Computed example of a mutant assay.
Amino acid sequence: MMGEFKDFVSRGNVLDLAVGVIIGAAFGKIVTSLTEDMIMPVIGVVTGGVDFTNKFVVLGKVPDTYKGSLTDYAALKAAGVPMLGYGAFITAVIGFVLMAFVIFQIVRMANKMMPAKPEAPAAPAGPSEVDLLTEIRDALKKA
């Protein structure tokens, strides 16, 4: 079993996958920073100073022991208040769209760089159905 595992791990595809996962995680952090630190502030300025990180709807009761601001999403969330954080969701959707677009561009560029696969030669054309039926008819007439 250990030999099979060693063979599995030493295959190129597994190593490529591991490298891809590590690079993908690092790239995800870059896209998250791009979204939260660069794009969302610009969107906030364009929309008149709207800060999407603090856009939420409180769904339940705020504990009596809570002493923080009722407009601080992170503090309310840490206090266990049930909330619908649509601002964080909008930020995540924008991050996803950015990530998907960049991955699309990478795959598109990689496909252009790869040599085109030659088309398989067409199978030699055999007799048509009409020809085969004609041969069968003629053979039956002779019999």
Rank of each mutant, 00 (worst) to 15 (best):
V57P: 05
A123W: 02
G48D: 06
A74Y: 06
V31T: 12
A125S: 07
A100C: 06
V50M: 00
F56G: 02
D138N: 15
F104C: 07
F104I: 04
G68L: 07
K77R: 13
M40T: 07
A75V: 01
Y86A: 08
V97L: 15
N13F: 11
K117Y: 03
D51G: 01
Y66K: 13
E36N: 11
A116Q: 04
E119K: 12
K55F: 05
I30R: 02
G28K: 03
V58H: 06
M38V: 04
F56V: 05
L132S: 13
A74F: 05
G12P: 13
V130W: 05
L70P: 02
Y86I: 14
A79F: 08
P41S: 02
V62Q: 11
T65G: 09
M114K: 08
D131C: 01
P63G: 11
Y66F: 15
I43E: 00
I106H: 04
K117N: 00
P41A: 02
P118N: 07
M99W: 10
M38E: 05
G28I: 00
G95T: 03
T53A: 06
I22Y: 05
M99L: 11
I103W: 01
D72C: 00
G60P: 13
V50G: 03
M99P: 01
V62D: 10
F96V: 01
A110D: 10
R108F: 15
V62L: 12
F89H: 03
V46A: 05
I136R: 15
V107C: 06
A88V: 10
Q105A: 11
I30C: 06
L98W: 04
A79H: 09
V50W: 05
N13R: 11
E135K: 09
L17V: 12
A100Y: 14
A100R: 11
G44S: 02
D51S: 08
V130P: 00
Q105L: 13
F52L: 08
P124C: 02
V107E: 12
R137W: 14
K29Y: 09
T47A: 07
P63C: 12
G68A: 11
Q105H: 04
I136K: 12
S33K: 09
V50A: 01
L84K: 06
D16V: 15
V102F: 15
V97E: 01
